[in-house]
């Protein structure tokens, strides 16, 4: 499978500060790829490099098989972008902006536009300066989603949407996904959204990729919490590799265990004799918190 986005060892410096420091991002054609990281991790910077708005200082990057800096104009015909902070021209109406951006990209699907206006409940007659944050975002989303392009780059597209609209957004992206020929790069802080939409994801921190893969791959890397009531003393369990935060209170134990150590730990419990057992799968939040916090 070809890669829609292929960034290797990407470095971007702003003066002495390295905003990106060897970032890896690989997005296959046709997938919805989540792009996560704490504030200031470098998501927007990466996207701006992909869009040819900024030039990288090191590493290599290709977008839809081309060089995003030198072939920007040609590549932009094939993609649509929704910035994290949408601002509209104060004197143009939402409908005018949608049409204009679509035409500048090389054409938009008017039926799709009408459908999206309806579903996002946007009044296209208002002037840019009178829209709320969420409605500005809808204008940019509708402009992007009704353009006939191969790649959608969305930078926190739902940060201003209410829960109903957020649901509409998910439906629409799932429709895109079903078409199968569109690639989506979705930067987001909303975990449920990422879980619902993304095939694979990349987590970055301080300008470096810390994790990439499918959600189930990543779940694999995290710990399950086990609480059990035992028939006897659990000798040797506390020192087993992969067991963490071990607590013993009379006949009750509670510990976290790495996925690889799950089997030996359970065997140990069975040997001692189990009266009751509760197992908590790793929550998404925990997964991200662990990745977001440095050195843990």
């Amino acid at each position: 499978m070809t890669e829609a986005i292929d960034a290797t060892g990407l470095v971007k410096r702003f003066g002495p500060v390295a905003a990106l420091d060897g970032l890896e991002l690989h997005v296959a054609t046709g997938e919805v790829h989540g792009f996560l990281g704490p504030n200031g991790a470098g998501k927007t910077t990466t996207i701006r490099i992909l869009l040819g708005l900024m030039r990288h200082n090191g590493g290599s990057v290709s977008l839809l098989g081309g060089n995003p800096w030198t072939e920007a104009t040609a590549l932009h015909r094939r993609l649509a972008y929704v910035p994290g902070d949408v601002t509209l021209w104060p004197t143009l109406t939402g409908g005018e902006v949608i049409d204009l951006l679509g035409r500048l990209r090389g054409g938009l699907d008017l039926r799709r536009k009408a459908d999206l206006l309806e579903r996002f409940q946007l009044d296209p007659r208002k002037k840019g300066r009178t829209y709320s944050k969420g409605n500005r975002q809808k204008v940019a989303l509708i402009a992007a989603l009704s353009s006939d392009v191969e790649l959608l780059i969305l930078d926190e597209p739902t940060s201003g949407l209410d829960p109903l609209m957020e649901e509409v957004f998910r439906e629409v992206v799932l429709e895109e996904k079903r078409r199968g020929d569109r690639t989506v790069l979705l930067s987001s802080h909303i975990l449920a959204e990422v879980e619902a939409l993304c095939d694979r994801l990349t987590i970055i921190r301080d300008g470096r990729t810390v994790e990439t893969g499918t959600l189930s791959d990543m779940r694999h890397l995290t710990r399950t919490t086990i609480q059990a009531e035992l028939a006897g003393p659990p000798d040797g369990l506390a020192t087993l590799t992969g067991v963490h935060a071990f607590q013993l209170d009379h006949d009750r134990v509670r510990f976290d265990v790495d996925t690889e150590a799950l089997e030996p730990a359970l065997q140990k419990l069975v040997q001692v004799g189990v009266r009751s057992l509760v197992s908590q799968p790793p929550s998404l939040e925990e997964l991200f918190l662990r990745q977001y916090q440095a050195d843990r």
Partner: peptide
């Protein structure tokens, strides 16, 4: 603030 056109005029394309 007044309402404006809901779509762009044919000329607004460049």
């Amino acid at each position: 603030a007044r309402l404006g056109p809901s779509s762009a005029a044919a000329g607004l394309r460049s």
